[in-house]
C-alpha cells in the first residue's frame, strides 16, 4: 500500500484490528487527500477529532488533538484512515471541503464540537449547538453537564477528564 501514498508526507503507517492507517504532517493533508482521491479513494466516509487530554496511554500521542479522515475506495473495496495531530494552542488545519464535498458538514461539526479551525472553509460556523453557545462540548475538559443525581457514582460517571492540576 505504502507506494501509493506520497512517501515524503507519511510519518507513520500501520494496521489496527484490520484497519489500515497512515499518519501525515498537518501541512500535507490537502496533498495527501487529493493524491488518495486520484488513487481511487473517492468516497469520503467521515472526519472527526479525538481529544487526547490526560490520556492514560503509555505511549503518549504527540499532540492533544488527533484528526481522523476515513476514506473508501468503492471499486477495490478498501479503506484508509489518515491521521493528523494538532497542537493544543490554536489547532488549525487546511479545509478539504473543496476536494471532498462531503467533508463540509463534518468540518463544521468538528469546529463546533472541538474548536478545530479549518482554514478556507466558506461557512465555518456552529452546526449542532446554538449559535450563542460558549465552549466546544466534545473536548475532554468540557463537563458532561446535566444535573447531579443523588446516590450515583458521580465521581466516576460524570467526570470525563480528571480535574485540572
Amino acid at each position: 500500500m505504502s507506494q501509493q501514498i506520497p512517501p515524503a508526507a507519511v510519518l507513520a503507517e500501520g494496521m489496527i484490528a484490520g484497519d489500515h492507517w497512515i499518519q501525515v504532517q498537518p501541512e500535507q493533508i490537502r496533498a495527501t487527500l487529493s493524491r488518495l482521491q486520484a488513487e481511487g479513494f473517492t468516497y469520503f466516509l467521515f472526519l472527526t477529532c479525538v481529544d487526547h487530554l490526560a490520556t492514560p496511554l503509555l505511549q503518549q500521542p504527540p499532540q492533544r488533538f488527533e484528526l481522523v479522515y476515513q476514506l473508501r475506495d468503492l471499486k477495490q473495496r478498501r479503506e484508509i484512515r489518515v491521521r493528523v495531530f494538532l497542537p493544543e494552542e490554536r489547532p488549525e488545519i487546511a479545509s478539504v471541503q473543496d476536494i471532498f464535498a462531503a467533508a463540509n458538514w463534518d468540518e463544521r461539526e468538528t469546529w463546533d464540537m472541538f474548536g478545530i479551525e479549518f482554514e478556507g472553509h466558506p461557512n465555518l460556523e456552529r452546526i449542532l449547538m446554538p449559535e450563542d453557545w460558549i465552549g466546544h462540548p466534545l473536548r475532554r475538559d468540557f463537563p458532561v453537564g446535566g444535573e447531579p443525581v443523588d446516590f450515583s457514582e458521580d465521581h466516576e460517571t460524570w467526570q470525563t477528564a480528571p480535574p485540572q492540576a
Binding site: 464540537m113 456552529r126 452546526i127 449542532l128 449547538m129 446554538p130 462540548p137 466534545l138 475532554r140 468540557f142 458532561v144 453537564g145 460517571t157 460524570w158 467526570q159 470525563t160
Partner: peptide, 16 residues
C-alpha cells in the same frame, strides 16, 4: 439548519 435534536450522545458515551 440542524441541531434541534442534538442529544450529546457522543459525549454521554464517554461518561459510560
Amino acid at each position: 439548519v440542524i441541531g434541534y435534536l442534538h442529544t450529546g450522545i457522543e459525549k454521554q458515551m464517554e461518561a459510560l
